[in-house]
Design a binder for these strands. Structure first.
Lengths: 213, 213, 213, 213
DNA sequence: GCTTAAGCGAGACGGTACGTCCGGTCTTACC
DNA sequence: GGTAAGACCGGACGTACCGTCTCGCTTAAGC
């Protein structure tokens, strides 16, 4: 979880065409399982290498840090889950049944479930925390993992605007944050329990506003 | 940033009446300055002890972890700032001018400024990140630092409800999250710039709701 | 067996009054036993630390290299052997029975035995080899281990000169090398077997000369 | 400088007729220059391969160890020097002017010069040291490099015996060691300076004997 | 002249050890 | 008994090389 430091003296990049796919996969699995078992902090690069049956240098050759390994492993996990779900390996969308509130509740409830899924919780907490402290890693985390999801909200909200379900003056990129950030807040800071009811309330409050109509 | 591990065998507590105030203060200052200079990760307990002119044991005697030191140092920093501001050392409140939107914008803008203040940024990022990964520390962080601030929103929103500026069905503890979480989200994840304009927009969106009236 | 490199940045010397005698002894024993068991090259600092039940840093704190550890361990071994032999902990001398040839043969035969003693062979070969390649270590080796022994020959040969058994023009410091070097040569380079008979022959040849009288 | 370990499983020998002469020479040069520049210990096989513009495998294919590479390189260096000197590429002999002492002094002085020649010093020290610790390498070193030279002394001393300049009872193989070993001793152990005067003294002492006549 | 098999440069790989850094405990001397 | 100092055991760090193992490529020999 190192704050970005002076960049490496560059050296020369290794030849990625000769990379061992076998090792790459083994490292992903070792990293994820270790983080799940002993937590991020007590997961070490040596430990990952040992469990993966890989030389340490093979990790250092391809990743700059423990966090970077875990980020890639986590992305890969997501891709595999996606492939398993929809064979087209493709893109997700927020459903559009015509009922905006219902659609958002569906999605946010699913998000709650995902955030609380023990399989994902440890690594995603660790990555988020690492990204908070290390801007470079954070940027990668946001770009690869977060923004694609957020974009789906933008799309759905824009459709809602066209359907007249959202006021025209509203910027969807901001609006989505009223929906998503409260969940993230509870999840990250553990202030109060993160439940489906909470997700529903957030949708209702955000759509209807706090002020009387 | 250790995930909570098996608790210490307790041993016997040291006698806090004989504690050296001098050392305590020096440790706070050393911790804060080091985190500011080299970042949280590269700040070490040895480094803090050395800069504070203190034996390592003096730190281990009174704090369980690096994060705990920093949390206390940060709380102390807050208290000192508070004392400097209002001599009564007392409590803050969100202003109540009768214009809820304006009052919230004032406070959220101030929050934006504080989050971006370089003096506070490094340690509070570090603490937040540590708390995300270590539940025990996170709980302390929330209880001592976050909840007191959030309570102020509850108070203000309840007053607004009585004044008819917020719908009666609304739970202020949830409502406040629509206001605060989006700022926290941008600050922590650095998705988009955190500005006064953004704070204003969040207040307007949250009060007015996304749906057309 | 590092050739002397640029000297350390000095740092500050540790406080030798607080040194752990226990660790020191354990390190000596571990070093000697490992060299005996697996050879000098395959003896590692990590291995010594592990067998001695000591942190690596405790070795690096007090010795600059593996060879230095072994040299001290070997010196200590010699001292202990000396103490065991003569309780006065004192000095040795080459016997002076009046018969120079016999006295020298006695000593050189003993030297042969010592060189071939399996307990000493591995470490002393290793140290000699290390000293050949690393001048600094070599100097220490010669000063602490070799020269004291050689001085005994100087003394005995001078006595012989006074007794008329050695020509007056002879420089004892050079003469001793005619006696000692051939044994060392056979031992180090393993050209031909190192035996008592060889020791006797060397003494006879050196005293009597190669040329006819 | 590995102590001889369990021998290789033999594998199959490579086809030496297809060997690249170019690479062989480049490896010799790289090895010798690196040993001269950074010392034997810090010379690595990877370094030799890199400087020679050669794959590591090309070294491992033809030599069992770093020491073996250097030994061959050094032998080759000697051969080249020999060719440069006497075009017949042939055999040396110790001169026989009839004056044994003078002839020996000539040769031993030349030996002193050679031992102190910076071009040869680093590699021959390294090889000797390696041979001291690794018996297999030592044997090769002695057989290929040392014994041929020593044989010349045997020849010359035998001639001297026939000429009546050396006593008949003397074994030349032992006698030569009285002459050569003292020089080797000073050179290897750096006890005292290795000079022409010392070489002369050794010859005089050895021929005349230490005892009065 | 075309195949084929070996040597070759290159360098990724699983490992081992390096020498350093720091965590957390323990000891010593001082106050 | 708290403190400054710092030695201690332990263990991870990131690096350097080891010796093995593919990869294409060149280059001869054998067909």
């Amino acid at each position: 979880m190192a704050e970005t430091r002076n960049p490496k003296p560059a050296a020369k990049a290794p030849d990625s065409t000769r990379r061992s796919e076998r090792s790459r996969r083994a490292i992903y699995e070792a990293a994820l399982s270790l983080v799940g078992e002993v937590g991020y902090t007590r997961t070490t690069i040596e430990g990952i290498a040992a469990r993966a049956g890989v030389g340490k240098q093979t990790i250092y050759r391809w990743w700059p840090s423990k966090a970077a390994v875990l980020l890639e492993a986590f992305l890969d996990l997501g891709e595999q889950a996606a492939e398993a779900a929809g064979a087209e390996g493709g893109e997700y969308e927020i459903p559009d049944t015509g009922d905006l509130a219902a659609d958002l509740k569906t999605v946010l409830r699913a998000t709650v479930d995902e955030l609380l899924d023990p399989k994902y919780e440890a690594p995603s907490r660790a990555l988020t925390a690492a990204g908070i402290v290390d801007p470079a890693l954070g940027a990668e985390f946001v770009e690869k993992l977060l923004e694609p999801s957020l974009q789906l909200y933008v799309n759905r909200l824009r459709a809602a605007q066209e359907a007249g379900d959202v006021r025209t003056g509203i910027d969807p990129r901001i609006a989505l944050e009223l929906l998503v950030a409260p969940l993230a807040h509870r999840w990250l800071l553990r202030t109060l329990p993160l439940t489906h009811e909470y997700a529903d309330a957030v949708v209702d409050y955000a759509l209807g506003g706090l002020a009387p109509r």
